[in-house]
């Protein structure tokens, strides 16, 4: 039951954080082993999903610090993502695809805690409060991390746009 309910959530969190499908599957397995060993520590009065995602987040960041994933390249965005519905405007579609690719690779340039906050808030659609609960920090800290992450990614997009203009 736990596997059916939570595999996709944990796997996607790991995939978005590491950028590697294979790595994410191995880490998901490690996280479930840790989950089974920690189940007796779960406080029944609390939100299980938030508790599990906090456990997963802690494990991912610990592994990141131990192995330094940021030095590895991420899989291409299109390698595993299902095909997105295109727009009628091909030029706009190309621009959106380029933005997605830049953001996907740009995640690797964010420090671990900021990257995780961006993944939870922006990609997984959690609220600031939910992100703070999973991250184990105050809401203000999450807002600050999201602000820094957004600004850094916007600068990456701006720089790419300037380089594109230079090339033309």
């Amino acid at each position: 039951m736990l596997v059916d309910l939570y595999t996709k959530k944990v796997f996607n969190m790991a995939y978005q954080f590491t950028g590697s499908h294979q790595e994410a599957e191995d880490l998901t397995q490690d996280i479930f082993v840790k989950l089974y060993r920690s189940l007796d520590k779960f406080d029944l009065g609390k939100n299980f999903t938030a508790w599990l995602l906090a456990l997963a987040k802690n494990y991912l960041i610990d592994e990141y610090r131990r192995t330094k994933w940021e030095k590895r390249s991420r899989d291409d965005f299109e390698d595993h993502a299902p095909t997105l519905a295109g727009t009628d405007d091909p030029e706009r579609g190309l621009a959106e695809e380029e933005t997605r690719n830049l953001l996907w690779s740009g995640l690797n340039q964010l420090p671990a805690e900021i990257r995780m906050a961006v993944i939870l808030k922006e990609i997984q659609g959690k609220t600031y409060e939910e992100t703070a609960e999973i991250s184990g920090v105050p809401v203000g800290t999450v807002k600050s991390r999201i602000s820094r992450g957004r600004l850094q990614l916007a600068k990456i997009l701006s720089q790419s746009s300037r380089e594109g203009e230079h090339d033309m």
């Binding site: 595999t7 397995q29 990614l153």
Partner: peptide, 29 residues
């Protein structure tokens, strides 16, 4: 320009699709 790109980034992230894990992972779990 930065504000426009930040807005575009937020919109693009919101449209990131979930990726399916392999059936082998489910068996392992």
């Amino acid at each position: 320009g930065l504000a426009a790109r930040m807005r575009a980034a937020v919109a693009a992230f919101a449209a990131f699709p979930d990726v399916d894990p392999s059936p082998a992972l489910r068996r392992r779990l």
